[in-house]
């Protein structure tokens, strides 16, 4: 991958992620049981970035997504929530992916991302509300996080296996990794 190709690819992924999170915000609340729960569709892009780019570049994709999604219709408090969630889930996903492809599949990576995103958000929420009982809400959110995480893992796996360019970038990335 040349430098320009890499830059365009990062920008492309970030743009897709921003659009997905904006679309997701427009969907009115899919889960009646758990207020505040979201599908986390933008996690597809994070998964793809982790598997096709270096860690530094994947981090850039996540950062650009959070900043732009906030500028396009968020407030400073949503920025804090999604920022903390995204940071924690990115670190978790990166760590889990380190276990290697023979031990962990995309499902595990995306479920970890979904749950750690919830943990990060609720931690900030309980810090703002100054009562840690907000964390009691975690089991409900992580239950939904597991379901949507599995679905998103399957989607991302499908994309990685069937889109030709992604396959190519992934093999490039794995070559770099082993070298």
């Amino acid at each position: 991958m040349t430098n320009n190709q890499r830059l365009v690819y990062i920008a492309l992924l970030a743009a897709q992620a921003v659009i997905i999170s904006l679309l997701e915000r427009a969907i009115p609340f899919p889960f009646a049981v758990a207020p505040g729960a979201k599908l986390g569709l933008a996690n597809i892009i994070t998964c793809m970035a982790l598997y096709t780019l270096s860690t530094k570049d994947a981090g850039k994709v996540v950062m650009i997504r959070i900043t732009l999604a906030t500028l396009l219709g968020g407030t400073i408090s949503t920025f804090m929530y999604s920022g903390a969630g995204a940071l924690l889930s990115f670190i978790g996903m990166w760590g889990v992916k380190k276990l290697g492809p023979s031990r962990i599949s995309l499902i595990g990576v995306s479920v970890t991302g979904a749950i750690l995103h919830n943990v990060g958000q609720l931690t900030i929420a309980s810090w703002i509300a100054q009562t840690w009982t907000v964390l009691l809400y975690l089991p409900v959110l992580s239950f939904i996080g597991i379901l949507s995480g599995i679905a998103i893992g399957i989607i991302a796996n499908y994309l990685l296996n069937h889109v030709e360019k992604l396959q190519y970038y992934r093999s490039l990335q794995e070559l770099n990794y082993t070298r």
Partner: peptide, 11 residues
């Protein structure tokens, strides 16, 4: 086929 052992352990 896609699910690996560590996926389940992690979940």
């Amino acid at each position: 086929q896609m699910v690996k052992t560590w996926d389940i352990i992690l979940i």
